[in-house]
Computed example of a mutant assay.
Amino acid sequence: MTPQEVARIAGLGLPVLCTDTCSVLDIMRDPTRDAARAHERVAAQALLAAMTTGPQLVGLVADQVRREFAENVPKVEQEAIQALTKLRERIIRANEIDKVFGGTGVVDLSHLDDHVQRAHAVADHWMAASETVRPSPAIADRAFARLMAPHTPGRRGQSMKDCVVIETYLEVIVALRAAGLTSPIVFASSNTADYANEQRGILNADLQAEFSPINVQYAPNLSAAKHLLGV
């Protein structure tokens, strides 16, 4: 971000949410997954409303996140469509079998026919409402160093895309704090395998040591992000 953009955001004095790709994609993922939770979708809608009405919240997405979102949307959308199709087929079969034994009730899932499109629209709206953070020329070198160390989220043998994302956010957050922003800043990523203790959602200690001096908190899902941001 340019110094002028940083100054503008800092001047708003609003909470800031930095979102990883997976957390935005979660909004439109297969709702039949065991890990899917309604309250996290409720939080996503509330956070989006906070970004767009008022506003009460500034949403930031790294340029790398925007690229990854565009690349992954077709796959995530298709997975959701296939899962809901499979669910409907099972319910139809169960209805038919139950009818053989005298059952008269029918489970109707027609309300799910356009679920994927509606969820996709919310995810698109999230991306449109969020401001893009473009990396400075120094980010690539920092990301490579993080990967090779390795420091969270870097792991040897992996792509350095996640490292580019976190370095991009660290750079803009440092600039926002230097510009006088004192409001809560949260980094949200449901990729707990790379960022946190998967059982407890606690950020890895090495990244926490970087977050603490600039007063950044980690959220493993958007519900936790909403709570930490106080919106």
Results as ranks from 00 to 15, higher is better:
M1G: 02
Q4W: 01
V6C: 04
A7G: 03
R8P: 01
A10K: 02
L12Q: 15
V16E: 10
L17A: 12
L17T: 07
L17C: 06
T19R: 02
C22K: 08
C22L: 11
S23W: 00
D26L: 01
D30T: 07
P31F: 03
D34W: 03
D34I: 06
H39N: 08
E40F: 00
R41Q: 12
R41P: 01
L47K: 01
L48I: 05
P55I: 06
A62M: 08
V65C: 05
R66W: 07
E68D: 15
F69G: 03
P74V: 06
K75W: 06
K75L: 13
K75N: 10
Q78F: 06
A80Y: 05
I81F: 01
A83F: 05
T85W: 02
E89N: 12
E89Q: 15
E89L: 10
I91A: 08
A94Q: 13
F101N: 11
G102T: 08
T104Y: 00
V106T: 13
D108K: 05
S110D: 15
H111L: 09
D113F: 00
H115M: 12
A119Q: 14
D124V: 03
W126Q: 07
M127Q: 13
M127S: 10
A128W: 04
E131N: 06
E131G: 09
E131R: 14
R134S: 15
R134M: 10
S136A: 14
S136L: 10
P137Y: 11
A140N: 06
F144Y: 11
L147N: 03
L147C: 04
M148I: 07
P150S: 11
H151M: 11
T152Q: 06
P153T: 09
R156N: 06
Q158Y: 03
S159N: 12
K161P: 00
K161F: 01
I166W: 03
L170M: 14
E171P: 01
E171M: 04
L176I: 05
L181E: 13
T182S: 14
P184C: 09
I185T: 12
V186H: 08
S190K: 12
D194W: 01
A196H: 02
N197K: 03
I202G: 00
I202R: 11
N204P: 00
N204I: 00
A205T: 11
A205F: 07
L207Y: 00
A209Q: 15
N215H: 12
Y218F: 15
P220M: 09
L222K: 01
S223K: 04
L228E: 08
